[in-house]
Write a protein that binds this DNA or RNA. Structure first.
Lengths: 209, 209
DNA sequence: GATCACATCACACGTTGGTATGAGGTGTGG
DNA sequence: CCACACCTCATACCAACGTGTGATGTGATC
């Protein structure tokens, strides 16, 4: 495993104001956090390692896309890093919109250094939890992808609580065949009990929401 | 069933300013919503029917407890009605705090009437969803409460994926006894399959969070 | 002291689940 | 054309599950 969970979280700072950016950078580094800075959203998107653990500190007022719009765009792009927003000219509706969109915090400038540190820490913690859940889910999805169509079908009915006999009737199969698919599904999914398989099936449904 | 899901949602308006309160009341009634008004948090808490469907519209500046503190107090009191906050003298940190605490919306005064209607509608929808989930969960908890200690114990191990034989060894019982408790648990919980029981067990764990 | 819920177990029986052996068919890709 | 994955099934066997009968013992409640 090259970079499992031991990877250091990175704080991505997106702000077009150079001095603000550098100030934030040194603040976060002073408390032992790894930071990267970007002068625009475009620059940020061109960077690699956006799939690693961490969070984003985003200025609302940016050239081109606003921070708020960009926050919503991130979801579309599949980037699920938690976002901390900051602004010098914000109002209440703006902060409410950001929080509704899932922001971890929304800090008006000037903010106290400790407030920013707390917000970033909370964001990184949220990311850690998200990531742990996501990793499990992905493992399950991957294994599920190795199932043959029939195996998937049988697994669905098994985890819906039906008996082999019922499944056989429903699919127009003999009971033996159902048992074979059922066994294969258990093996491929790595389920050591029916309870296991049921929970995996539920996890799959959640991801499909 | 006297008042199942067909009950009309009620908007509870808590504001110490008489004219504001009455204005809101008539606004909401004009769009066909049932509203009740309270001049203080105390008055609100003395009211009955707080367990019915609906939401709360809460002014931040109130005599005694502030709207924000009261919002957090509601959770302690077991009142889970969604909250819409409003204020004439708010700032960003205040709105962020409210949203973090789970507020549906935070409206600075003066607000557009449509914004309030939208917020209240969203709050009522959230309540409807919450309530549907909660009702199912409560039914499961109630049934689980009718289990004997042994039955609960066996149910936990069964839904953990263990075999009767293993459970028997773990609890120092014979396999027959385990089967009896298992059967009783299935019957009392109303589970028609093991998959059912597993999901109920998971729902119980979620409620215990 | 009778009643009742709870808990325990032996024995027996039938059902359901899981796997192996052996065998046949289809379709795809090298 | 052959290998391979997939899908199908019969037969057989063993393990696990579920239930019923009958019995014993405890503690709480009335």
């Amino acid at each position: 495993m090259p970079q499992a969970s031991g990877e250091t979280p990175v704080v991505h700072i997106v702000d077009d104001d150079d001095s603000q950016r550098f100030g934030l950078d040194s603040l976060l580094r002073s408390v032992g956090l790894a930071a990267r800075t970007y002068g625009s959203t475009q620059e940020f998107l061109k960077a690699d390692r956006l799939d690693g653990p961490g969070c984003i500190v985003l200025d609302v007022r940016l050239p081109g896309t606003s921070g708020l719009d960009f926050q919503e765009e991130l979801a579309t792009l599949g980037i699920r890093l938690p976002v901390v927003l900051m602004t010098g000219h914000g109002d209440i509706p703006m902060s409410v919109r950001a929080m509704k969109a899932g922001a971890v915090d929304f800090l008006p400038k000037p903010f106290r250094e400790q407030d920013m540190i707390d917000a970033v820490t909370a964001a990184i913690n949220r990311d850690r939890l998200q990531r742990a859940n996501e990793n499990q889910a992905i493992a399950i999805v991957d294994r599920h992808a190795t199932l043959s169509p029939r195996e998937r079908e049988v697994m669905a009915l098994v985890t819906a609580g039906k008996m082999n006999k019922q499944i056989a009737a429903e699919l127009g199969l003999s009971e033996v065949t159902v048992k074979i698919h059922r066994g294969a599904a258990m093996r491929k999914m790595g389920a050591r009990s029916l309870a296991d398989l049921v929970r995996m099936a539920d996890a799959l449904k959640d991801r499909a929401r």
